[in-house]
Design a protein around this nucleic acid. Structure first.
Length: 593
RNA sequence: CGGGGAGUAGCGCAGUUUGGUAGCGCACAGCGUUUGGGACGCUGGGGUCGUAGGUUCAAAUCCUAUCUCCCCGACCA
């Protein structure tokens, strides 16, 4: 491609709206263009990167038996009504009507369509297993798109689905994805860690998410450097040290004027925060056996030095969602905000859930459900009992690793992919069944596996850039070689040589972007750096006289001179070496179910 | 949805306090000089000042409403 023909306009300054590096660099390099919040154009350069990434998806999916399909972006509402998600999902799902007034939805994901496809085609166990995937646009009306391509509303996703006859077969397929995902990310130059993830509302089966460690991440990851334990903070556990045992002392009221927070309370009484009990008031929507949803007051008690992990609580009480209770609701159950206590509340109206550290922590200070008053020496079992005792608290920096006891630390990560054992939820709902050897009808067991292309592209930039621009791994770079001609009007021989070199590189199958513009050297070099093409070949009058062109590697600035006589072969060798360098990262990863 | 910030030329910004009919840098076009890390000179094109009302002789500027974008949080199948 000739730069003089390329559709682009590099920017010297990033638009003020952009404040993450990948966002700024993609805008400055003319890779993407914004249309609305979370909705983007891919320009020629950016699209080439997207295609490179997607080609890697295809290779890795095909390698584990995948077959590519394309499913629609607009779905009839009926399919989503069949699985119930039409009713469960709120305004994240974009809905529209066709000319006849029929309800349609914009695809947020494709479980329904995939299950429908399986239902339509599969009748026998002999057809199983199989795996289908697609690379398709999805739309989720995210409440807050952010950071360029990191979180968008319209996005492209590679989503794959497995169809197996039973859980054992799915369990056998699942690790192949685990490995394929590492291969994909490694081949894109993106280091990831796989952690078991919260499987949310869909069953209680295994799921992993793949996170790239970067400060711009939206997820918090808990990591142990000593033994390699890692988990999303939503589900991370830690070794809770046993509290010091002590004889239970009689409860007594103590005046604590104004001590409405744990910190203030501990300070006022001159005790450690671990000697207090923290009360948290929530309202939970909980599904009832009769199919209705009940709004339940949930009274949570954790030790004062701990933080509630709402994901653990949500899962533990099987709530659909949680929200903080308002003052009126708190008073209605006999508690007082800031001075809440599990002792003396209207127990029949409350679901009381305590962290499993509480029963073994003696003589805690809790509220008295009266303003400016607390209770000393509150003891679980003697003074109150809970409906549920669970692990409810969030792991944090410094907490002991649950495996080895070393201190944990937290880092930020971006979820670039996830794999998920779906089970039979969708196949049952969509009637995707097969007949086994005994003529018995059984639901197909499904798995789903997703990777966001744009997000992966953005993360690659977050991990590979310097002050001058992007440093694409060659596997996903828009072009492999940037050929910079430094010809001027006075050196037509340089133009001729550059043209010839451009043609030979192209003929040899090298992906080359040829800067044939009438620009000064500095402009060309800066654009080359910004766009991040891995190899830069510079051909100028001096070099031509000596029969050489200069090669510079974008990723480390390494330079060497290449004789023009053998330059095509040299470039091909270097490209191959760059590929080998990246691909060597795709190694076997032990699967930890 | 809560909190904060911002909408003036493709990009970055000034002008708004104190109303007087829009400006700077980059980019873009032409000419000339230049030519190995974002050249220089001259000339030129481009803006309903987010939108709609209102106040006023006069509104980018004051008032009201509204839309959009960004950041933090909530949310995230």
């Amino acid at each position: 491609m000739r730069m003089s023909q390329l559709f682009f306009q590099t920017l010297r300054e990033a638009p003020a709206d952009a404040d993450t590096v990948s966002h700024q660099l993609m805008l400055r390099a003319s890779m993407i263009h914004q249309i609305a919040a979370g909705i983007w154009d891919y320009l020629p350069l950016g699209l080439r990167v997207k295609h490179k990434i997607e080609d890697i998806f295809r290779e890795e999916m095909d390698a584990i038996g995948g077959q590519e399909v394309t499913l629609p972006v607009v779905h009839p509402a009926e399919l989503w009504q069949q699985t119930g998600r039409w009713y469960q999902i709120g305004s994240d799902m974009a809905r529209l009507k066709d000319r006849a007034g029929r309800d349609l939805v914009l695809a947020m994901t494709h479980e329904e369509i995939m299950a429908e496809l399986a239902a339509a085609y599969v009748s026998s166990y002999r057809q199983l297993p199989f795996m289908l995937y697609q690379i398709q646009t999805k739309f989720r009306d995210e409440p807050r798109p952010r950071a360029g391509l990191i979180r968008t509303r319209e996005f492209t996703m590679k989503d794959a689905y497995t169809f197996d006859r039973d859980n054992a077969a799915l369990d056998a397929y699942y690790p192949k994805f685990y490995q394929a995902y590492f291969n994909i990310f490694n081949r894109c130059g993106v280091d990831t860690v796989a952690v078991k993830s919260d499987s949310g509302n869909i069953g209680d089966s295994t799921a992993h998410e793949f996170l790239a460690i970067t400060p711009i991440g939206e997820d918090t990851l808990v990591i142990c450097d000593n033994c390699g334990y890692s988990a999303n903070r939503q589900v991370a556990s830690f070794a809770k040290s046993a509290p010091v045992a002590a004889a239970q002392q009689p409860t007594e009221e103590v005046a604590t004027p104004g001590a409405e927070t744990i910190a203030a309370l501990a300070e006022f009484l001159g005790i450690a925060e671990s000697e207090t009990a923290k009360a948290i008031f929530l309202m939970a929507d909980i599904d009832q056996p009769d199919g209705t949803v009940k709004s339940q007051f949930v009274f949570v008690v954790v030790r004062g030095d701990m933080e509630l992990n709402e994901t653990k609580l949500t899962n533990g009480i099987k709530a659909r969602r949680l929200r903080p209770a308002v003052v009126e609701e708190i008073r209605a159950i006999g508690a007082e905000p800031g001075y809440g206590s599990p002792v003396g509340i209207r127990r029949d109206q409350v679901l009381l859930v305590v962290d499993d550290l509480i029963p073994s922590s003696p003589n805690l200070v809790a509220g008295a459900n009266k303003v400016d008053t607390h209770l000393r020496h509150v003891n679980y079992g003697r003074d109150y009992t809970a409906d549920l005792v669970l692990d409810l608290v969030a792991a944090s920096d410094g907490h002991p690793c649950p495996n080895c006891g070393s201190p944990l630390h937290t880092v930020r990560g971006v979820e670039v992919g996830n794999i998920f054992k779906l089970g039979t939820k969708y196949s049952v709902a969509m009637g995707a069944t097969y007949l086994d050897e005994n003529g018995e009808s059984k639901p197909i067991v499904m798995g789903s596996y997703g990777i966001g292309t744009g997000r992966l592209m953005a993360v690659a930039i977050e991990l590979h850039h310097d002050d001058n621009g992007i440093q694409w791994p060659i596997t996903i770079a828009p072009y492999q070689v940037m050929l910079v001609s430094l010809a001027t009007e006075k050196t037509p021989e340089v133009t001729a040589a550059a043209e010839a070199l451009y043609q030979s590189l192209k003929a040899a199958g090298v992906e080359v972007l040829y800067d044939d513009r009438d620009e000064r050297a500095g402009v060309k070099f800066n654009d080359a750096d910004l766009m991040g093409i891995p190899l830069r070949l510079t051909l100028g009058a001096k070099g031509l006289k000596n029969g050489i062109a200069e090669l510079k590697l974008r990723r480390n600035g390494e330079q060497r001179e290449l004789p023009l006589a053998t330059i095509v072969a040299s470039v091909q060798e270097i490209i191959a070496a760059e590929f080998a360098r990246i691909n060597a990262r795709a190694v076997e990863m032990p699967y930890e179910g």
